[in-house]
């Protein structure tokens, strides 16, 4: 390898190293992490909203062909929400627009994410994994007051 090649390789690896370092920092230092394997909540068969404190909520989302349970949810601004998600049939997607909540609903498993809604507004949730003929109708929302 000549010098130019070594320089190119070194530059490439350095850049990638910096990127990777930053994303590890975001994940472990700033808690922007991806879903993990959870075993404390078992797959459920109905959706529900549980309020633990004035601004602490837990929502169990059940994805079905082709709607979400519960449908529209209303919560006060500043709430922290623990979201649990499972599917009653095939694989679905779950993306809350404008947040980092991006999950897959896989039957037999439970996905989890925590999100804090500071700004009031309408947060649209779309199913973004193909789940059959009605997939384009599958959406719901969280209204933050």
């Amino acid at each position: 390898m000549d010098r130019a090649e070594r320089t190119a390789l070194f530059t490439a690896v350095t850049f990638l190293g910096i990127f990777f370092g930053l994303l590890v920092y975001a994940a472990k230092g700033m808690n922007v992490d991806v879903p993990t394997c959870i075993t404390d909540v078992k797959p459920f068969t109905e959706g529900k909203v549980i309020q633990h404190a004035p601004n602490r909520y837990e929502i169990h989302y059940l994805a079905r062909m082709w709607y979400f349970e519960p449908s529209d949810v209303e919560i006060p601004a500043g709430s922290t929400v623990d979201i649990y998600l499972t599917s009653a049939d095939v694989i679905h997607g779950f993306h809350i627009d404008g947040t980092n909540v991006n999950l897959m609903a896989i039957p037999g498993t439970v996905a989890y994410a925590r999100v804090k809604f500071d700004k009031p507004g309408v947060y649209h949730i779309v199913c973004h994994e193909y789940c059959g003929i009605g997939h384009q109708d599958m959406a719901t929302k969280i209204v933050v007051k």
């Binding site: 490439a12 690896v13 990638l16 394997c37 897959m104």
Partner: peptide, 25 residues
């Protein structure tokens, strides 16, 4: 391809992410 999936521990995903950076080289 499974970062957002339940059922897989996130640190394994991180390791695959590191190898993915490797395959960019």
């Amino acid at each position: 391809h499974q970062f957002t999936e339940p059922g897989i521990t996130n640190n394994y995903k991180l390791i695959h992410s590191l190898f993915t950076f490797g395959v960019a080289v």
